[in-house]
């Protein structure tokens, strides 16, 4: 049985791997929420066009970027992913007319709030990718993955099972 150490308050804040650890060993897990009509199609196009991008993202297809509840992003971090990307249609091009405008406001607040609390700005990122922008999608994934690789794994929020009893 794997033993998981309980994260004590004193150690969980600073457990990011810095350059002292072999960085090529760290492969981040990044969740990408992609809107069905633009970003997901753009990702598809990137694949069809054989643009190469890092394999670290796990894609979750949503109908619109406005569908994304900030709870999902925080839940992803709680589950142990190292980064989250949310991508939608460019402003003005939303398939549902205005979903991405609402998303833009929501995510502005969420991103600033998480940064304020002390989570690295690179952890949660947002982008606009249209269905025709396969190359751009690959570039964005490359950037996000590079950023997360640089700042290391996310351990602040990760829920671990405490197998020891506590008083």
């Amino acid at each position: 049985m794997k033993s998981s150490d309980y994260q004590t308050m004193e150690t969980s804040g600073n457990k990011t791997l810095r350059s002292s650890v072999n960085q090529t060993a760290f492969e981040p897990k990044i969740v990408a929420f992609l809107c069905n009509w633009c970003s997901y199609a753009g990702a598809d196009l990137a694949g069809v066009s054989r643009f190469q991008y890092p394999p670290n993202i796990r894609v979750i297809r949503v109908p619109c970027s406005g569908r994304i509840n900030p709870l999902y992003i925080i839940k992803a971090l709680y589950s142990g992913v190292d980064g989250v990307l949310v991508s939608g249609c460019h402003p003005g091009d939303c398939h549902y007319i205005s979903g991405n405008y609402f998303a833009r406001r929501k995510f502005a607040l969420l991103k600033r709030f998480l940064e304020y609390l002390g989570i690295e700005p690179e952890r949660v990122q947002f982008s606009w990718v249209s269905a025709a922008e396969g190359a751009r999608f690959a570039q964005i994934i490359q950037k996000v993955t590079n950023d997360i690789k640089r700042i290391g794994p996310f351990t602040y929020f990760k829920k671990r099972i405490n197998t020891k009893e506590g008083v």
Partner: peptide, 9 residues
Amino acid sequence: DEVIESNGR
């Protein structure tokens, strides 16, 4: 019950 990957309690 809490289960994360294979650890559970």
